[in-house]
């Protein structure tokens, strides 16, 4: 006996028109439409997620991104601030995001 009325549980019909085509850049798992690399995105997301008014400390960034070197974090931070996604606050080691959502 099988009930035909119940839809299979595995079908996630979560379609997001227009958003799905962007992500397929080689092996880089997720690269949203904003044109940032995965590393730059991670840095940006961490800065975004920081609730403190003075923003996220570079030290915290470093502690949360073990897999990245200080140089590559700096590079990402440089890039992001050049693009205007983040800006430094109380000193050059604190960053906040401009991307209000």
């Amino acid at each position: 006996t099988k009930s035909a009325s119940q839809p299979p549980a595995g079908t996630a019909s979560f379609s997001n028109p227009g958003m799905n085509e962007v992500g397929n850049f080689g092996g880089n798992s997720f690269m949203p439409a904003n044109g940032l690399t995965a590393a730059q995105n991670q840095v940006l997301n961490l800065i975004k997620a920081c609730p403190r008014p003075e923003g996220l400390n570079f030290h915290d960034l470093k502690n949360q991104l073990h897999h990245m070197t200080v140089a590559s974090i700096k590079q990402a931070v440089d890039f992001l601030s050049n693009e205007g996604h983040i800006y430094s606050t109380v000193d050059d080691d604190h960053f906040k995001s401009t991307d209000a959502e």
Binding site: N82, E83, G84, Y87, T89, T98, D99
Partner: peptide, 20 residues
């Protein structure tokens, strides 16, 4: 504080310039 606001304004300008 002024510095922060200036940085923020500058960053927003850069962002806006890119999004044009």
């Amino acid at each position: 504080l002024v510095r922060i606001q200036k940085n923020k304004a500058a960053a927003l300008l850069r962002l806006a310039a890119r999004n044009v």
